[in-house]
Computed example of a mutant assay.
Amino acid sequence: MRIGPNQRLASTRVVRVGMIAALLVGQPLAALAQATALTAAPTGPYYDRAFMLAADQKCRLFQPMVARALTSATLQARGAAVRHGASADDLAATAGRASAKANATACDNPDLVRVRGRVATAFAGWAQTPRMTFPGAKADWMADRYGLVQAGWRLKQSVTTGQAPVTFGLVGDAGQGETLAAVVSFVGRSRPYAARIVLRDADRSARPWLPGRAGDLPPESLRLAVFSAGSSEAAPGLLEPTRKDGQAWRFPDAAADLIAALDPREVFAVEFLFRDDSIARATFEAGDFAAGRAFVDMGSL
């Protein structure tokens, strides 16, 4: 995640605090080396933040805004662990250890009280950050929490299909919630009559689909398609700067949960269907979509 100098300092502070969290409840000094190794491992930051989240759920440690910021950071740490080689089993085990430690820690534990203050201070500034970039391997998720007076992107990733720019993510409007949408501006061809999100079907394949060539989708037998709920002319604030018009295709909210559940190294696609049976495909990285969505959920500034 790309952040400013002040937020970068806060992020570092949280990781250090996390090591203290891993040593709560009077562990013997002999456990120090083990806890240090845990924090240094790919799942270390994820453990730290998952522990604090679990402790918050048990003890109500933080104000809602700080808890949401911590949720976003925890999801980001989870994605980073995956990109550094952590398996699904590693993540499940790490989350289980964090939850068990939180359940075994008294809410009035002096170390937890001290850590609580440090975490709250670190994430209070994070919660006031209006914009953030969540980098991916080849594409980023751009998040924006500034107040809106018209429809605009809250979370987006931009690619192209042929010569047409396509932006996908969460659209916000003044006084309205977020809607999952894709905006496309085709030139010199007819408009599509339908659009769909295509991604791995977790019910058919529990393991991530990680092909060697970037941009590959799973075989058709392992895919799930979620069709658009409708389309309209795109509002000016949703268009690429070089385009004057385009179509906005809206998708069910449940599709956002499906994308958030993907491995951050996986891809998904938005396909536009034309009446001549042709298909235009725009491919996106799952990346830190889940963390970006949690960041947006902190609300407008």
Rank of each mutant, 00 (worst) to 15 (best):
I3T: 14
G4I: 00
P5E: 15
Q7P: 00
Q7E: 14
R8S: 11
A10D: 10
S11L: 15
T12A: 06
V14F: 12
R16C: 05
V17T: 12
M19C: 03
M19Y: 10
I20W: 07
A22R: 04
L23A: 10
L23N: 12
L23S: 14
V25A: 10
G26M: 13
L29R: 10
A30N: 08
L32F: 10
L32S: 07
A33P: 03
A35N: 14
A35R: 15
T36I: 07
A40V: 03
A41T: 11
P42S: 05
P42Q: 06
G44W: 13
P45D: 09
Y47N: 03
A55R: 05
A55K: 02
C59Q: 04
C59S: 07
R60Q: 12
R60Y: 01
L61Q: 01
P64E: 08
P64Q: 14
P64H: 11
V66C: 01
A67S: 15
A69V: 07
L70C: 04
L70K: 13
L70M: 11
S72H: 06
R78N: 09
R83G: 03
A86Y: 08
S87H: 03
S87G: 06
A88K: 10
D89V: 12
L91K: 05
A92F: 01
R97F: 12
S99A: 15
A100S: 13
A100Y: 12
A106V: 14
C107G: 10
P110Y: 03
L112G: 05
R114T: 15
R114C: 02
V115H: 02
R118N: 06
R118I: 11
A120C: 01
A120E: 11
T121C: 00
T129L: 13
P130S: 13
R131N: 15
F134W: 12
P135H: 04
G136D: 09
K138E: 14
K138D: 13
K138N: 14
D140K: 02
M142W: 02
M142Y: 05
D144G: 10
R145D: 10
V149P: 00
Q150N: 15
R154F: 00
R154V: 12
K156E: 14
S158W: 00
P165H: 05
V166T: 06
G169C: 11
G169P: 08
L170C: 04
V171F: 00
G175M: 04
Q176Y: 02
G177P: 15
T179M: 10
T179N: 11
A181T: 15
A182F: 00
A182W: 00
Y193M: 09
A195E: 11
R200K: 13
R204P: 02
S205D: 11
P208S: 09
P208Q: 05
G215W: 15
P218G: 11
E220G: 05
E220I: 10
L222T: 02
L222R: 06
L224N: 09
S232P: 00
E233V: 08
P236I: 04
P236T: 05
G237H: 03
R243E: 14
K244T: 12
D245G: 13
G246H: 09
Q247W: 04
R250G: 04
F251D: 13
F251Y: 04
D253C: 00
A255M: 06
I259L: 11
A261T: 09
L262Y: 04
L262D: 06
D263Q: 07
F268E: 08
F268G: 09
F274L: 14
D277F: 08
S278N: 13
I279C: 02
A280E: 07
F284V: 06
A291T: 10
A291W: 07
R293I: 03
A294S: 15
F295M: 01
